[in-house]
Amino acid sequence: MREQQEDDQLTGALAQAASMLRAEPVPRAGWREALLEAVASDEIDQMPLHRWSVRPAAAIAACAACVIAGAALSYGVLRGPAGAPAPGVAASSVRNGDASLPVRFALEAPGAVHVSIVGDFNGWNPAGLPLHRMPDGRTWEVEVGLTPGRYAYAFVVDGRLARDSSAAESGADDFGVPNSVVLVGGS
């Protein structure tokens, strides 16, 4: 404190000069009146600014959620569990304005013989929606028309359920394997 006071203490010519700078300047005649006239012709903004208060962690979480949701809707990266065939990929494409949105599910399972998808959208019927092997011999895909909503699903690889370990959200474990969930957005 004493050191700071000494730091703030001006000496010599600078102290004298600073005291001169403290003299109040005299404005031109009519300046005050012009100021008050300008104020009188202006209006007070009656709408207080809305003050947003967002914690950094919440902002980061919100951004991350947006990125994940966007990625899930645009690409829907899907992978199988450990011990299951190689991780898979599912992608979705969206046509704005349609009641039903095409969502493409894909799974990378090079050694599989039969792959299907089960979920809320087909009554969890394993035979209902088979995936088709792609020319690369590794990827299995199917496109499903879904109306906006939340759907739990899982892959069935050669008779074994395999959830998507990288989906944005996991649903309840209804069949021995935790389900994956896809959120299909409206337009």
Partner: peptide, 20 residues
């Protein structure tokens, strides 16, 4: 002085506008 008077006047006008 002229710039100071202009800046001060503008500051008060802005303060008045944002008084709420």
């Amino acid at each position: 002085r002229e710039d100071a008077e202009d800046a001060t006047q503008e500051a008060f006008v802005r303060a008045h506008r944002a008084l709420a």
